[in-house]
Write a protein that binds this DNA or RNA. Structure first.
Lengths: 183, 183, 183, 183
DNA sequence: TATGAATGAGAGTTCATTCAT
DNA sequence: GATGAATGAACTCTCATTCAT
């Protein structure tokens, strides 16, 4: 990926989170990235395309940094790695996380964007249900619930970062998470 | 509240959900409500004010229709009423629900808007924890988690409305919800 | 027709003839007409619509000022009135005439614009052929030819305005025109 | 002439006729010709220069294919060859013909472009008038009229190509043309 | 000669907001 | 209170042209 394209995406992410989609003119994104206005449209079809690409970038980033640990571990251990990984990523990538939420709830998100859900997580849940380690409720509902509980925890620690230092607190949070899901 | 103001809010809700904030000019809202463009600005200071008022309207509506049943019932029963009430309201007010999500994740939402969280729910959780009916994890995390689990269930039944007819399915969903929270 | 709309059309006509369609920004038209840029788009959907309306305006103007004299005159006399009327109008409305030519040969002209041909002239030719005063060649070809001969004469006198003073010259020109058409 | 230059001119002709001057970016011309955007500007100084060159190309083409037959034939016969030749060329080169009209009526045409009128035709008319085969009206007016009648006939047969098959029809059309001009 | 990413001035158009009626 | 024509700053996007390779 060209250097200019990368800088444009990073500038867009920062500014969109700061001022919203409408509050951020493409000219400002270009200037912040140190390129000409025309260059932005050389790399992206439109502002909407830029927004979509920033979203893709954030989702890829998140997936990359919360890869589920190797399959030899127990389901519980893998969920714990995921739980802590997601929170850690959210804390050090709050802009990307905010962007994901903003985009997914905006008019820019099309139904197809469902596809961007983390496939590793989907597989883990399936495995957990098959092996009776996770509750046998409707799989789609379970997936939605897992995602939203991960989100809640991440939001929580984002808002109270001091509690993130407390290992007991995190242990207790994960315990709540696990108890909710386990068979 | 004047009739025109009401129609403006309802038109705004519908159009904002359909086309987003930026995708909906005030002129379109006015036309859809059957009033002149200038009239909108007699009732609202600005477009941002209109958006804020629509949000308030939606939150009020939701609170109104998910009043928690009287305090003599058990915590579990009241949570069940809330769980089913929220889902029912979400299914028949999907526009308002989408608007709430869209607004809360947009750049329009200020931190103060936390206050608009349902106070009845906050009180119920507090009571549940005090009387050891609900898990004793961090109260703020529990609130976030309850809200997000309610959202997950609502989103789920919005997407698969046919399952909403299945009483067993709903029972199982609530059971999952309750098991996650109970002491 | 509103005053601002009229001024916009007149400014557009003048500037489009002077600098062409691409050479004339809508902002310049608005400024020349003494209105805001937005006002132009309040009266016209787009630049293309403005161009179309200017064309309509010019065609109407030409038809208005070359109304064929009353039907009691001979076909020859009516054609003479038309011939001289068209030339006179062309000489004192050269901008409008240039605009008509420019538009009709541009990519803006759609096939439907054929309809804007002068209906009085069409009727006169038909009558002339029916009464065997005009040549009995293919009516469509005759119409095209009459139009183009009128154009030629107008272009000629526009380029050599001094000859327009010479009554003999005009007589001779009409004689050529008539001889070409008569039965 | 280099192969790329030739392809650029042909692409430009096709696209300018289809979408107009403003509707055709140079990048599109380059792509259609299968060359890089920069290459266009090695062969032409500017877009205006390209347009001018396409015009020159079309006028040359037309002159080439409507060479007036050898001087031993009568004026009438030579005019007939010209008349039929022009129509035939126009029918099989409608893009070039449309381009000529479009250019000559556009803001790109400078007065000097008069010079591009067919010199053979000018000479033929002069000879015809000298030898009293053609009407003795103002030579400039006669030239304009001949050109415009040739255009009318060409436009006519372009619009009704089926009539072009009818030899009687063509004979009658030429007869009309000749009667208009003859002494 | 050829390339095509980069440029940036400038275009058409939008739209929140005002205000005379 | 209601109207809707008018405003003009600001926006997204275009495209002729350049230049390092």
């Amino acid at each position: 990926m060209s250097d200019k394209r990368k800088r444009l995406i990073e500038s867009a992410l920062e500014l969109f989170v700061l001022n919203g989609f409408q509050g951020t003119p493409t000219s400002q994104v270009a200037k912040h990235a140190g390129v000409a206005t025309g260059t932005l449209f050389h790399h992206f079809d439109s502002k909407a395309d830029l927004i979509q690409c920033v979203y893709q970038h954030c989702v890829d980033l998140r997936a990359e940094h919360s890869t589920i640990s190797d399959g030899s571990l127990t389901v519980k251990q893998r969920l714990k790695d995921l739980f802590l990984g997601r929170i850690a990523w959210g804390l050090s990538n709050s802009a990307a996380l905010t962007f994901i939420h903003r985009f997914e709830n905006s008019a820019f998100a099309s139904p197809d964007d469902e596809l961007l859900k983390d496939p590793n997580l989907v597989a883990l849940i399936q495995e957990g249900q098959s092996s009776r380690k996770l509750r046998l409720i409707d799989a789609a509902l379970l997936q939605l619930s897992v995602e939203s509980l991960l989100d809640s925890a991440t939001r929580f620690y984002s808002r109270y970062p001091e509690k993130y230092q407390d290992e007991m607190h995190k242990y207790s949070s994960f315990n709540f998470f696990w108890t909710a899901l386990k068979y």
